[in-house]
């Protein structure tokens, strides 16, 4: 059975590292795809309030954001403004905005769209109530009040 006799002193071949770049590139592509760049530059300050009972927002692609807060640019005063996408908007623009958001999604997913209200903690409820009324009228019933998880507990 000499077939199985190992030749003594076989040299260990060098490990080939040529596939390393491929592996790393694969990882890069994964991160590049999963990285979600922030779509809108914030024009309003939104330090969201803290809450203990927060839930995660599922499926980020189905979330549309409404920002409410005082303008970041101090020259524009202190009154709370609404920001949709990339610019200041008024209450009357919300129905159009919701329609656009719906158009952008697949038909099956349209019912699952959540509107996240990112409002600054100093904002008064008046403007938030107005936004909510607009959302009700246009049929965007799923909402989420954006809040941070309380640090302790």
């Amino acid at each position: 059975m000499s077939k199985f006799i190992k030749s003594a002193k076989k040299e260990v071949p060098q490990m080939s590292t040529s596939s390393m770049p491929d592996i790393v590139f694969m990882l890069i592509f994964f991160f590049m795809i999963t990285t979600t760049m922030r779509q809108a530059d914030p024009l309003v300050r939104t330090t969201v309030p803290e809450a203990s009972q927060v839930e995660k927002l599922e499926r980020k692609s189905l979330v549309s954001y409404i920002y409410i807060g005082p303008p970041s640019n101090k020259k524009l005063g202190n009154e709370s403004r609404i920001q949709l996408n990339d610019s200041f908007k008024t209450l009357d623009d919300i129905p159009d905005f919701i329609m656009m958001e719906r158009e952008a999604r697949d038909e099956v997913d349209r019912k699952l769209i959540t509107t996240s209200i990112k409002a600054d903690q100093t904002v008064r409820m008046g403007i938030v109530t107005d936004v909510k009324q607009q959302l009700r009228e246009v049929g965007a019933f799923k909402i989420s009040y954006s809040a941070r998880k309380t640090a302790h507990e």
């Binding site: 991160f31 999963t34 990285t35 979600t36 969201v48 809450a51 009972q53 927060v54 839930e55 995660k56 927002l57 980020k60 979330v63 959540t114 996240s116 209200i117 909510k132 009324q133 959302l135 009700r136 009228e137 049929g139 965007a140 019933f141 799923k142 909402i143 989420s144 009040y145 954006s146 809040a147 941070r148 998880k149």
Partner: peptide, 16 residues
Amino acid sequence: TTMDVDTGIARRLPPP
């Protein structure tokens, strides 16, 4: 990559 998860209090608005 910011793996920050958006959190919030979920609510359902009533129809008008």
